Computed example of a mutant assay.
Amino acid sequence: MRQLSNVLTLGNLFCGAIAIIFILHAPQYIAEFNGIEYTITNPEPVYWASALVVIAGVLDFFDGLVARWLGIQSPMGKELDSLADVVSFGVVPGMILFRLLRSAYMQQPDVFDVSYFNLAPALLVPCFAAYRLARFNLDTRQAEFFIGVPTPAVGLLVASFPLIMLFNNFNLAHFLQNIWVLYVIIALLCYLMVAEIPMISLKFKSFNMAQNWPRLLLIVLLLAAIPILHYAAAPFIFVCYVVLSLIVPPGKAA
């Protein structure tokens, strides 16, 4: 039982590794339009990668919960959790954004002039995620609340993008096919992960309503948003999380 939380953490890492394989092996084929050949990527494996990030998020939530319930928290478990998170919620989202940028550039008339330098900004996400996680392990201020947006929130947000594009709720796919929108999203996510902004921790440590109402409000908003917004509920709740963290003093959210 002492290794149960570590097993869940390794399950998180396993999901992240499989998600990377899905993204890397998304099959490509050549299609011809108006006499011009284009390389088309089959998006289905990327959707599976998104689902695996969600599963990794569930495992990441329960590994800490189990460790606290069983009283088996350890420095090794903390380090292992960060190593798993940097893959599942850093590398995988970076690769998803890389694919989305590549797809967006495919819509441009100068698509054949695009180099990997145009797509490289997507890989800043895993870099900033690694920095954020390393700082978290050393920062004693983050025992009761976070400083900067936690990497699982970023990972789950980015994982929703391919699914939003698939179902195209509220025509949001149009925005996710715009290279400048994607660049802005990348810049904002990188900034929010390392910003000196106190963010609400979603860990329930007591039954005190005065302390837990921001967490409960986020849960209610999420449950209300899912049947209305579907996969677009992910960016909606992400924005609510950031805004609520800005307006609620950290002590009340701890």
Rank of each mutant, 00 (worst) to 15 (best):
M95I: 03
S115Q: 09
A143E: 10
V91D: 10
F112N: 05
P150C: 07
A130S: 14
D113P: 00
V125T: 03
A134C: 01
S103R: 14
S82Q: 10
P150G: 00
C127G: 13
A130L: 14
A143I: 04
G90Q: 07
M106N: 13
Y116H: 09
V125H: 03
S115H: 06
A120M: 15
L124V: 15
D110F: 09
Q142N: 06
L97A: 08
P109I: 11
F117S: 12
A130E: 04
A104V: 13
V111C: 01
S88Q: 09
D113H: 12
Y116T: 15
V125M: 00
G90A: 01
A130I: 11
S88M: 08
S103T: 13
N137M: 02
F112G: 03
Q107W: 14
D81I: 00
D113R: 13
Q108L: 13
V91A: 11
L83P: 02
A143V: 10
L101M: 11
V87P: 03
S88F: 02
L97I: 07
P121M: 09
L80E: 10
V87E: 09
M95E: 07
I147E: 12
A104D: 05
Q142D: 04
L123V: 01
D81W: 05
F112I: 07
R135T: 11
V114M: 02
I147V: 14
T140N: 12
F145C: 12
G90D: 08
V149R: 03
Y116F: 10
N137F: 05
F136H: 06
A130F: 10
I147F: 04
L123W: 08
V125L: 13
Q108N: 10
F145L: 00
D113S: 13
F89I: 01
G90T: 05
L83G: 09
S103P: 15
F98R: 08
P109F: 07
